[in-house]
Amino acid sequence: MNIREKQIMLLALRAGELMLKNGAETARVEDTATRICHAFGIKEAEVFAMPTGIFITVNSPEDHAQVQTYVKRIKSSRIDLERISKINAFSRTLTKQPVSVEDAMQTLSHLSEDIQFAFVFRLLGAAMIASFFTVMFGGGLSDFFCSLIVGTLTYVFHSLLAKLQLNWFIEDFLACAVATTLTLTLTAIGIGRDIDPIIIGSIMIFLPGVAITNAVRDFLAGDTMAGLSRAAEAMLTAVSIAMGVILVFQLYSVSGGVL
């Protein structure tokens, strides 16, 4: 196992890690990492990815006694589809036009830098989701503005929570509790009339749509383990959202509307 092979493995590992962290389905991660290994001439590479980790094993072409394995544990994940798209394209160009391992590593580390939409854009996104869903579920104009405020503030709160690196269960739970509290407060002081569409709109941001989609895609690709864990994630997220809303409603009714 020479230095070059190690570098290639690290490159494949890094690409796979980045994709998993940004919400790609496991089959795509395995495909990309394998493709990178093949592009640099490593024929015998096995990649096994799960939502929580990635394993790469390479059999050295010259010396068959040498088998090397790397394991990378994936901890946090968030969704950034642009990065997935870019890394996917990157691995495809690698197979077409060979570059040096160092150059490829450089391109990849460039891709891993923060290229997200500015926070303002995401905030706008959150506000749009909350407010337009409120209208879709039968809210009026005042409800539209109410959920615009609720959606924005909830998203700010959720982003701040994410900095603390708790787990997503607690983050979603607290964010939905805050959304419900804000809705009840704002409707009490007269902004917005109908609480149901406002709360529905505000919790739409946290719904596990990505987990559902990826679970199905994982099952379809034959990755039953990954599919099951994503399906469990989807269910737990739904439960934590429900719990957040229920808690505040219960407190509200127990305290007689003082909250």
Binding site: A24, E25, R28, I79, L81, I84, S85, N88, A89, F133, M136, F137, D196, I199, I200, I203, M204, L207, P208, G209, V210, I212, T213, N214, R217, A238, I241, A242, V245, I246, F249, Q250, S253
Partner: peptide
């Protein structure tokens, strides 16, 4: 480009958020 770039945002409006909410309200 990858299909998930279109299916993930596309699927989200029909995910039953309202159904979930109404279930909770009925439960409460």
């Amino acid at each position: 480009d990858a299909a998930i770039l279109f299916s993930i945002p596309g699927i989200l409006p029909i995910v039953p958020g309202a159904g979930m909410y109404n279930t909770m309200r009925a439960f409460l």
